[in-house]
Design a protein around this nucleic acid. Structure first.
Lengths: 140, 140
DNA sequence: GTAAAAATGCAATAATGTTGCAAATAATCG
DNA sequence: CGATTATTTGCAACATTATTGCATTTTTAC
């Protein structure tokens, strides 16, 4: 809870119920969240529009980032190591489990280096691996 | 044109105006296309539903594949090297240019290996690099 | 506590995606 | 080629997801 307010303050955001609840969700969640997940878990205590705007604000401030997906959904994730510092480096691999459908930030798996052809300037690299996560594998 | 019919035949698809036109678009396009791009470039000569279904069919047959994006859109790309052979390997890096907004398949940049923590089973790896493409860099 | 600034909820609207079914088109076979 | 069958398409209706303006409420700053 302390951490929660800290993050909001550091980013010069007003402390509101909506932002607290949504940020709390991210802090509790092991993986990434889609807009729909957030609406479910807040059981409609907030307007859809508020959720959209809150997510947008969080992305702008670098509190969360979005993860590329091949279906047309946006996944958002808070990445613990970096975001507390206020500036954001999203330099780890994301994993999507085909079974439980969760997206997990593999904080300790570094993004490998990619060598581009001549003339390309590289800014960011996103790596998304899909397969079966450790929980689903051992759980079965 | 020959190539076009070839691809459709190899995949046991009926030759229709819609499929010809959409596939032609992909063959001509240097980068990836979104559903909206296709609707624009066919100037509404086909119903929206037809476009949806055609894209879906092409993906199923492995003629095109979709590329992960961080906004909520699906990008489709035909990857020349593989798709003509009828079977599909999408094992290359995708590049999104921040300036011209195009998505390019870097056919000759292989997906690097990623080592996952214990317990994870890896099936597919997507790599999306963003930055400035060769055309935008030299063009400015 | 009060005034100014910011965030929220509501309503309306836009954009995007899906499904069933009849009509049109393409492939098959004599 | 022409008729039959299979497939594809377009339309309509509907569902879901996202965006915008504005009045109201809440938060912040003093």
């Amino acid at each position: 809870m302390e951490q929660l307010l800290d993050i909001l303050k550091k980013n010069q955001l007003s402390i509101t119920d909506g932002r607290k609840k949504i940020l709390e969700l991210f802090l509790k969640s092991p993986g990434a969240l889609a807009h729909a997940d957030i609406e479910k878990n807040t059981d409609a205590s907030f307007d859809r529009v508020t959720v959209y705007r809150t997510l947008q604000t969080f992305v702008e401030k670098g509190i969360i980032h979005n993860i590329p997906t091949t279906d047309n959904s946006i996944l958002y994730a808070l990445c613990k190591d970096n975001c507390e510092a206020g500036h954001h480096h999203d330099n780890h691999v994301h994993f999507i489990c085909d079974m439980c459908d969760k997206t997990i930030c593999l904080e300790h798996v570094a993004i490998p280096e990619v060598k581009l052809p001549k003339g390309f300037k590289q800014k960011q690299t996103d790596v998304v691996v899909s397969g079966v996560c450790n929980e689903c594998k051992t759980g079965s």
